[in-house]
Computed example of a mutant assay.
Amino acid sequence: MIEVAALHALRSVAALGTMARAAHELGFTASAVSQQIKRLERQVGVEVLAPAGRGVVLTPAGQALVDSSPDVFDALERCAEAARSVAEGAPRGTLRVVAFSTAIRGLLASAVGRLASECPDLEIRISEQDPDRAVHSVDTGSADVALVHDADGLPAPMPFSLDRSLVHTDFGDIVVHRRHPLAQFTVPLTPAALQGNEWVTSPPGTVCHQWFRRLVADLPEAPDVRHLVDDFSSQLSLVASANVVALIPRLARPPLGDDLVALALQRPPTREVHAAWRRSAESSPSIRALVAELSGEA
């Protein structure tokens, strides 16, 4: 009989391309993963991997195994969830959650605190991952729930094996020093009001930089970007100590203190945050409890 752990190892190697990467994701050594693959080859009687440069590729037999594996894992997960649901549907056990950093700060931290008192038998473990990696982790069973955000208005792509639910809509605000001229505005800012300012922004390639470029796209003069900084706390430090302006997502914003002011935009940039989980785990009381808490339905 095929070992489930060995099949899981093959699936991770197929997705990540090397034994080392698969071992890191699974929490094993590369040698342990290699031994699992060799056991799998003995069990099915054929080779499932072949060397390719510094990595490996699936043989046709290995590809057939990987293509069939979702049905196996889905069936096993449905069995486990059926057993858990017998216990009065109470959230219990360990729930592995992967999320981008600002979702951890702005959504998960408070939700986990509330669930700790509401569901004492539930343990939540969080790992930071960007949306693409988070989706992969849930799809391969390395995590149970992912929090992902859309990219430039386009939802994160999901394999058919995953389902999702909108849990939050995030907005961007302008943050300035209390003595900055923009701080005197009492109505939402128009793009024209932003002309002539010095900026600190997130680096190109990030969602927040796309927000910024779209915000200033119609201004008659190119924006004066003085600093490119990925960390939002560092951006706010520059706003507090210099005459620069920042565009900060609300999820990413720590308490501003007395020196900084957040100003709403007339047409603020937005991004949707979704929770994603495997369809085979749909009945999980733990997943349902977390998603309800995140979306304010608890």
Rank of each mutant, 00 (worst) to 15 (best):
Val145Tyr: 04
Glu88Val: 04
Arg105Cys: 01
Ala32Gly: 02
Arg288Trp: 05
Met19Asp: 07
Asp259His: 12
Phe232Arg: 01
Val273Ile: 15
Leu265Gly: 10
Ala156Pro: 02
Pro60Gln: 11
Leu65Gly: 07
Asp67Cys: 02
His149Ser: 13
Gly89Val: 06
Arg54Ala: 12
Pro249Tyr: 12
Val112Pro: 03
Ser233Trp: 00
Val200Lys: 00
Leu76Ile: 14
Gly106Ser: 01
Phe232Asn: 11
Asp170Cys: 11
Gly55Lys: 09
Arg279His: 10
Ser161Val: 02
Ala264Tyr: 03
Ala109Lys: 10
Val98Tyr: 02
Phe100Val: 06
Arg226Leu: 13
Ala23Ile: 00
Arg288Asn: 10
Arg271Trp: 06
Glu198Ile: 04
Ala262Ile: 07
Leu95Gln: 05
Val273Pro: 00
Arg21Phe: 04
Arg11Thr: 15
Ala242Phe: 02
Arg11Gln: 11
Ala151Gly: 02
Asp259Trp: 01
Pro285Lys: 09
Val46Glu: 15
Gly93Tyr: 11
Val148Thr: 12
Ser165Lys: 10
Leu76Cys: 01
Glu282Gln: 13
Gly141Tyr: 13
Ala82Ile: 08
Val225Cys: 09
Ala252Asp: 03
Gly257Glu: 05
Leu95Glu: 02
Ala111Lys: 03
Glu88Asn: 11
Pro269Ile: 09
Pro155Ile: 01
Thr190Gln: 14
Leu26Tyr: 10
Val86Ala: 10
Gly172Pro: 05
His149Trp: 11
Leu260His: 01
Ser12Arg: 09
Ala289Gln: 06
Gly296Phe: 15
Val176Ile: 05
Cys119Pro: 07
Leu95Ile: 05
Thr59Asp: 12
Glu272Ile: 09
Val239Met: 06
Glu41His: 04
Phe100Asn: 10
Glu297Ala: 11
Arg226Gln: 12
Val56Asp: 06
Ile37Gln: 07
Leu189Asp: 05
Pro157Tyr: 10
Ala264Val: 03
Ala23Leu: 03
Ala52Val: 11
Pro223Ser: 04
Thr18Val: 04
Ser295Glu: 12
Leu10Glu: 12
Leu263His: 04
Thr206Lys: 05
Gln129Val: 04
Arg179Asn: 11
Gly45Asp: 10
Leu107Phe: 07
Leu26Val: 05
Ser117Tyr: 08
Val86Trp: 00
Cys119Asn: 09
Arg84Tyr: 06
Pro268Ile: 01
Val4Leu: 15
Thr186Trp: 02
Val4Lys: 03
Pro223Met: 03
Ala262Thr: 00
Val57Lys: 14
Ile287Ser: 01
Leu10Gly: 06
Arg250His: 13
Ala30Asp: 14
Thr94Val: 13
Phe73Pro: 01
Phe171Gly: 03
Arg288Gln: 14
Asp218Ile: 09
Ala20Pro: 01
Thr270Asp: 14
Leu7Ala: 13
Ala14Gln: 08
Asp121Cys: 03
Ser137Val: 00
His24Thr: 13
Phe73Thr: 07
Glu282Tyr: 04
Thr102Trp: 02
Pro159Gln: 09
His180Glu: 06
Arg279Ile: 13
Ala143Pro: 09
Ala262Arg: 07
Met19Tyr: 15
Arg92Val: 00
Ser165Met: 12
Arg179Val: 10
Leu251Glu: 07
Thr190Ser: 13
Ala146Thr: 02
Ala22Pro: 12
Pro191Ile: 08
Pro120Tyr: 04
Asp130Leu: 09
Val46Pro: 06
Glu221Met: 07
Thr29Arg: 03
Val13Lys: 05
Pro204Val: 09
Glu77Asn: 11
Pro91Asn: 04
Ala252Glu: 06
Arg267Ile: 05
Ala103Arg: 03
Ala30Met: 03
Met1Val: 12
